[in-house]
């Protein structure tokens, strides 16, 4: 009964807090327009590009990339004073899908509501952590929508698919071509495959109202399988989604920490606002826009 009383008390408190705050909600939405910073993810491959991977029998397989996407959550920035700023997943969570990349294979993740200041690093999760998946429902409102349809397992308690990479095998000689087909998530509950990527910035990132600086980051897709040290190489057909092992899946997930590298910052790009860029990105019609491409 003690637990229940505690729940009842918490419930009552929560309701009381929620019950009379009509006015507060509008403030946030009005302020959330200025883009504080842009994470630009330039991928090493485009959909349709060919690449070569070694399978578990040491055979080289020639593949054509068909799907590459992952969920970004838990974006955090660290100030030069070591203060960690965590952005709400309802603002900063994103589905990075190579199918939506521009002609330079780049996807932009727009970050809002970062307090003005100087930052030295940024981190984000690939997928959705157990804490978030089992935590507040309303804090997952955007994640539910991002995962809807394509990044969602109905028959799993952590419903999020963290990442997908698929490629078709171009080897017509092989009677059973090994297509690449890897979907990662906390399926089965034996291992936690959520990974956090930490990116140290090469110079200080200044967040201010008059600019929307961008962090130009290279995403080396092949490094998922052949990472730089201390990463460990893994054959694509050795992991769980190919009937392989949990250990190989862990190594593969670890390699997500290896594929991102900040190349440079654009510290002084003109301020943009979120509504404009979202409209621009959704149109995909090649119209010129002062706000977007700045190279």
């Amino acid at each position: 009964m003690n637990n229940l009383k505690k729940w009842a008390f918490l419930a009552l408190t929560t309701i009381t807090l929620f019950s009379c705050n009509n006015d507060d909600d509008n403030i946030n939405t009005n302020q959330a327009t200025h883009v504080s910073a842009v994470l630009k993810l330039e991928h090493s491959l485009a959909l349709g590009d060919q690449f070569t991977l070694t399978d578990s029998e040491k055979n080289e397989q020639s593949l054509e990339l068909t799907v590459f996407k992952f969920l970004v959550s838990d974006v955090k920035l660290t100030t030069t004073n070591d203060e960690v700023i965590a952005l709400s997943n309802n603002d900063a969570a994103q589905l990075v899908d190579l199918a939506n990349a521009d002609e330079t294979n780049t996807i932009k993740v727009y970050l809002t509501d970062i307090p003005e200041g100087s930052y030295k690093s940024i981190s984000f999760g690939v997928g959705v952590s157990q804490d978030v998946a089992n935590g507040s429902t309303e804090e997952q409102a955007k994640l539910y929508e991002l995962a809807d349809d394509d990044m969602h397992w109905d028959w799993n308690s952590n419903l999020y698919i963290f990442s997908k990479i698929e490629a078709s095998n171009l080897d017509n000689q092989n009677t059973v071509p090994k297509n690449l087909n890897i979907h990662v998530g906390n399926k089965g509950g034996n291992v936690d495959l959520f990974r956090t990527v930490n990116l140290i910035l090469p110079e200080t990132l200044t967040v201010a109202a008059k600019v929307s600086p961008s962090i130009h980051t290279i995403v080396s897709i092949e490094k998922l399988f052949t990472p730089d040290a201390p990463g460990v190489a893994v054959a694509y057909d050795a992991i769980n989604a190919h009937g392989g092992t949990d250990d190989a899946s862990k190594i593969f997930s670890d390699n997500y920490e290896n594929i991102f590298e900040v190349h440079h910052l654009h510290p002084n790009e003109a301020a943009i606002n979120l509504e404009d860029v979202e409209m621009d990105d959704h149109s995909h019609d090649g119209e010129d826009s002062e706000d977007s491409h700045s190279h």
Binding site: W153, W155, N156, S157, I161, N181, H183, G185, K187, G188, G189, N190, V191, N240, A241, H242, G243, D246, S249
Partner: peptide, 14 residues
């Protein structure tokens, strides 16, 4: 079995 399998593409035979 399909819930506790870590392979999302596991076949019935597996």
């Amino acid at each position: 079995a399909r819930i506790t399998s870590s392979n999302p593409f596991a076949t019935v035979e597996e």
